[in-house]
Computed example of a mutant assay.
Amino acid sequence: MSTTAFAPVTPEQARRLRDGADGDALGPLHAHAAGPALREAHGLGASDDEEAGFVALGYAGLAALVAHPAPRLVLAVDLDDAQVRTSGDHFGTVEVSGLRWAQVTAVFGDEPGAADDLAEARRLVAGRSVEDVADDDEVVGLVDRWDLLWYAPEELDTASA
């Protein structure tokens, strides 16, 4: 079986992975997946895969905002179940091991023009966790104005510009 997860990374981490580094060399890598706890917390059933994926991507986008400097960058990855350790929280947080670039199915990057709102959101989240900011209406309002745009893995340099 496999798990699709969304891993917030820095552009440097993504380039190192693309250039052949093992994901474990990047340090602890956390991602967000549409597991049972996330689905239950958001009232999503087994048939709500697309919506659950959007929720997990949203949490990964918040995690990128909290943990990494601009721009936000999230990798969509298909993982073997042995590569995933689930936390069981309602944010779908998982710890990833042994990630390889070949497992990246998409790259998500900030929409052009989002820099000012995201800079303000970064100021508001400084020193806080995803759990702290997920219900902060001001932060969520700033972030929700802008989409994380989909890019193919080979478009990493464009997505992270």
Rank of each mutant, 00 (worst) to 15 (best):
Asp116Lys: 01
Ala102Pro: 00
Glu50Trp: 05
Val133Ser: 11
Ala126Gln: 09
Ala31Cys: 11
Thr105Trp: 00
Ala52Gln: 07
Glu111Gly: 02
Asp81Trp: 03
Phe6Met: 04
Ala152Cys: 03
Ser97Leu: 02
Val55Tyr: 09
Arg85Thr: 15
Gly127Glu: 08
Glu111Cys: 07
Gly61Tyr: 07
Ser129Gly: 05
Val84Ile: 15
Thr4Ala: 00
Val107Leu: 01
Arg122Gln: 14
Asp144Ile: 01
Phe108Ser: 08
Phe108Ala: 05
Val9His: 00
Gly141Cys: 14
Leu149Lys: 13
Leu44Asp: 13
Ala64Ser: 15
Gly88Pro: 10
Pro112Lys: 05
Ala21Arg: 05
Pro36Ala: 13
Ala25Ile: 06
Arg16Tyr: 02
Leu44Ile: 05
Arg100Cys: 03
Ala70Gln: 12
Phe54Met: 10
Ala121Phe: 12
Asp24His: 01
Gly113Pro: 05
Gly98Pro: 06
Asp147Met: 12
Asp80Cys: 07
Leu124Gly: 03
Ala56Val: 03
Leu17Cys: 04
Ala14Arg: 01
Asp135Cys: 06
Ser47His: 13
Pro69Thr: 08
Val139Met: 14
Ala70Arg: 14
Glu120Ala: 11
Phe91Ala: 13
Leu44Thr: 10
Gly127Met: 04
His42Ser: 09
Ala33Lys: 11
Val74Arg: 07
Asp137Ile: 07
Arg122His: 06
His42Ile: 04
Ala33Ser: 13
Asp116Gly: 03
Ala56Met: 01
Val107Tyr: 05
Pro11Ile: 02
Ala106Phe: 02
Gly61Asn: 07
Leu44Gln: 08
Gly20Cys: 04
Asp24Leu: 06
His30Arg: 11
Arg18Leu: 09
Leu26Ile: 01
Thr86Glu: 15
